[in-house]
């Protein structure tokens, strides 16, 4: 249904897609152009900074595709649709998330993935095949981990919205903070890096996969990233269930 809706509104969809592509292309031009004037940014080369940027896009788009519906939860509650979802024989989180699957993002994912495949050999250099496979596997695993963290944050925000029937705009705050992951987090001050690692784990979500490929991630940090996602997932599920218990229909 989401697919039909998006392709039914062709001009609108084309506009949204065009906007997303413009943002992606301009940022990429910006990064490429800046490296015509400087050799490195925070000791990272162009290919490395590009990988950070592309990984941010990969994780962000991945989350956008599957969790877009959670952005609408405030409206669903206000218009009574939430009551309808709760009585259906399907997990409410899945029902709400899949309410709006952004198929346009599948299209934006194509150039992002292609460029990642182009960049990976450039940043991995002359590593042995085993090392390349290991780092590639770790990269993939940490990207999935990043999407899981994004999912948990979305659920936490959805829970707050269910509890308060407002605060859905918090999702935009999260989106804005997550956009700080476009650049390697090393460009930020130590205090801010700590904030992006331990408070809102954007660094773990979008920077750790690239760092793993570059060999800058210790074993402790790899474990830490899985602990963060696991803990967030459990906490978000607990918060969601507790929010549902307090939910009182407001408009149906």
């Amino acid at each position: 249904m989401a697919f039909l809706m998006q392709f039914g509104n062709r001009w609108s969809s084309l506009g949204w897609l065009g906007g997303k592509m413009i943002r992606f292309i301009f940022f990429f031009i910006f990064l490429s152009a800046i490296f015509r004037h400087v050799p490195s940014v925070a000791n990272y080369s162009l290919a490395e900074v590009a990988l950070f940027f592309l990984t941010f896009n990969l994780v962000d788009i991945g989350a956008q595709i599957f969790f877009r519906g959670l952005y609408m939860i405030g409206r669903d509650i206000r218009e009574g649709d939430m009551d309808f979802y709760l009585i259906q024989p399907v997990h409410p989180l899945f029902r709400i998330s899949s309410n709006l699957v952004d198929f346009l993002d599948f299209l934006t994912l194509i150039p992002v993935t292609a460029l990642i495949f182009y960049m990976l050999p450039k940043v991995m250099g002359n590593l042995s095949s085993v090392e390349i496979l290991w780092r590639g596997f770790l990269y993939l695993l940490l990207c999935v981990n990043g999407v899981l963290i994004a999912f948990s944050i979305h659920v936490l925000i959805a829970s707050i919205t269910v509890r308060t029937q407002q605060m859905e705009t918090t999702i935009w705050l999260y989106r804005d903070i997550s956009s700080l992951g476009r650049f390697p987090v090393d460009v930020y001050s130590n205090l801010f890096q700590a904030f992006l690692t331990f408070v809102v784990p954007i660094a773990v979500m979008v920077s750790y996969p690239s760092k793993a490929v570059l060999g800058f991630l210790s074993l402790e940090q790899i474990f830490f990233s899985f602990i963060v996602s696991g803990a967030l997932l459990i906490f978000s599920q607990f918060t969601w269930k507790s929010a549902l218990k307090k939910y009182c229909s407001v408009s149906s």
Partner: peptide, 29 residues
């Protein structure tokens, strides 16, 4: 058209980049 939201979004993003609202245009070729 009732589908003007998408083109408006596209226009806004292009405008912001081309206006130098993210970085000075001197960065560009």
């Amino acid at each position: 058209t009732a589908e003007s939201m998408g083109p408006r979004f596209c226009f806004e993003l292009f405008l912001e980049f081309a206006a130098g609202a993210f970085f000075p245009l001197d960065v560009l070729p």
